[in-house]
Amino acid sequence: MDRLMRWIGIGIVIFIAAPLVIVVPMSFSTAASLQFPPPGFSFGYYVQYFNDPTWLRPTFNSLFIGAMTTILTMALVVPATFALVRHKFWGKGVANLMMMMPMAVPHIVMAVGYYSYFGSLRLVHSHLGVVLAHTCLSVPITFLVLSANLKGFDRTLERAARSLGATPRQTFWYITLPILRPGLMISALFAFIQSFDETVVAIFISGRDAETLPRRMFDSIRQEADPVIAVISTLLFLAVFLGLIAPHVLRMVRRSLVRVPLPKPKKMAAQHREAA
C-alpha cells in the first residue's frame, strides 16, 4: 500500500514538473522547429529573441502596461480596502461583493465587453485601454491580499502612537504604512503579475500598437510555434523561480552575514536575584 502510494506520488510529481522542465532544453536547441531530443546545443534562439523587435516591443509593452496597472490598481484599492476593513457603513456588503466580482466573470466575457466598449471610446489598440482593463481585473486579487494584511494589523500600535504624541496623519505615515509595507509590496506584485500574464483581454484589445507579450506568444504559438517562445518561457520560468526562492536566499545571506555578538543581559539577571 505504502509503496503503491509512493509511486503514485512520484508519478504526479513528474506530471507536474515535466512541462516546467521541458522548455529549458528546447530553448537551447539548434533545431529549426520543435524537436526532441534536441539535435544540438546553442544560444541561437536567445540571440534571436534579444535582437528581434517584434519580440522586444511586446516585452516592453507588457512591462510598461504591468507597471501602470500596478500603480493605478494600488491607488484605487488601498483606500478602498481601508474603508472596507476598518469601517462599518451601510452598503458594505455590496461594496465587498462588487470588488470581488471581476474575479467571477470569465475573461472572455470581459474581452467581448472591452472590445466593443473601448471601440466606441477609441481606446482599442492603445496602452491606456489595456491598462484600464487590466486594472479592473487586478482589483479582486489585490484587495484579497491587502485586506488579509490589514485585518492582521494590530490597531493598538496606532493607539500607542497617538498616546505618544502623533497626530492621526503622523500615525498613518510613521506607523501604519511602514508596518504594512510588505503586504503592500506583495499585493502590488500580484497586480503586476495579473497584468503581465493576462492573455484573453489583451488578445482582443491590445492590437498592434499595444501588443503585449502574451498576445504575441499566443499568435506565434497559433501560427508557427516559433522556438523563441521556449526562450521566453524559460526566462519567465526562471523569473518565477528566482522570485520564489529569493526570500529564502536573502534570509540565509542575512543570517550568514557578520552578526555582532549580542550583549548578555547582566542587569536583568541581577534583578532576578533581587526579586527572588
Binding site: 494590530d154 493598538t156 500607542a160 502612537a161 498616546s163 505618544l164 502623533a166
Partner: peptide
C-alpha cells in the same frame, strides 16, 4: 496626542 499621557499597553504595542 494632546494629553501628554504615557501608556504601556497590554501587549506593549512596540513598533
Amino acid at each position: 496626542q494632546e494629553r501628554n499621557i504615557g501608556i504601556v499597553f497590554q501587549n506593549y504595542a512596540l513598533f
